[in-house]
């Protein structure tokens, strides 16, 4: 029997990220498990990256591309700061990422990327991208391997879908953190690529980034 050989430039190393925008905050979360097929490569790898301008980059997928995207982006942010003599805003950074990703239209970064931060008014914002740079501004986002398990929970909890009183449910940042913890605990029961721990970062104008780590099941 002839076995076909091929070289595939991508791996999928999972990770699940959640981002929720509030009126004066942004809460982002990532699990800390890194996998390749059914092997666990790391139990302490977070998919949240703090950028120079206090934006938080969430990126899952192929770690090689995630790290390259992050490195290239850090360079672009510095160039922007030198040429414009001011830090880049999160909406401008989102536009920059979109252009960078579409620049690799025919050999894409294999990543599910979300950029979050505070806009110029201090309001939370979340921008989600597909691998080739299509961008949408969202109230909340969830990407990665457990996305099918988590996204409908966010629909129900944040938009109040399928209730007698649908609409955006406003939460304090503490309530949002608790909600995200509960969601990760539920999702890790049913997804083998999610587990070990969840890191939750809260970004506010006055306090900057606060971090909360919560253990999850390790099997």
């Amino acid at each position: 029997m002839v076995k076909e050989h091929g070289w595939y430039p991508y791996e999928f190393q999972s990770g699940t990220t959640v981002a929720v925008a509030g009126d004066d905050y942004v809460v982002v979360a990532s699990d800390t498990r890194l996998t390749e097929n059914y092997a666990i490569q790391s139990r302490t790898h977070s998919n949240v990256y703090k950028m120079h301008n206090n934006s938080l980059l969430l990126s899952t997928g192929f770690l090689g591309d995630v790290l390259t995207l992050k490195k290239t982006l850090e360079g672009r942010i510095k160039t922007y700061e030198y040429t414009h003599s001011k830090p880049i805003s999160t909406p401008a950074l989102a536009q920059m990422i979109s252009i960078m990703m579409y620049g690799r239209r025919f050999f894409p970064y294999y990543t599910n990327t979300v950029i979050t931060g505070l806009d110029t008014d201090g309001k939370g914002c979340v921008y989600a991208f597909d691998p080739v740079g299509s961008m949408t501004k969202q109230l909340y986002a969830c990407e990665g391997s457990a996305m099918p398990l988590i996204l409908p929970i966010l629909d129900a909890r944040i938009l109040g879908k399928n209730t007698s009183n649908p609409g955006h449910v406003k939460r304090t940042k503490e309530e949002t953190v608790t909600m995200i913890k509960d969601i990760y605990m539920a999702a890790c029961e049913r997804n083998v690529e999610l587990g070990d721990g969840v890191v939750i970062h809260t970004l506010t104008k006055d306090k900057g980034i606060e971090t909360d780590v919560h253990p999850l099941r390790k099997d």
């Binding site: 457990a146 398990l149 988590i150 929970i153 629909d155 129900a156 879908k161 539920a186 999702a187 049913r190």
Partner: peptide
């Protein structure tokens, strides 16, 4: 549904709670 079900399920629900949890998990 698995994600929602895992969140909405509680042991020993009464029939009304069970209906609500099942419906919410299915619809969402």
């Amino acid at each position: 549904i698995f994600g929602l079900g895992e969140l909405f399920f509680k042991p020993n629900m009464n029939p009304d709670e069970l209906f609500e949890a099942t419906s919410q998990a299915l619809l969402n």
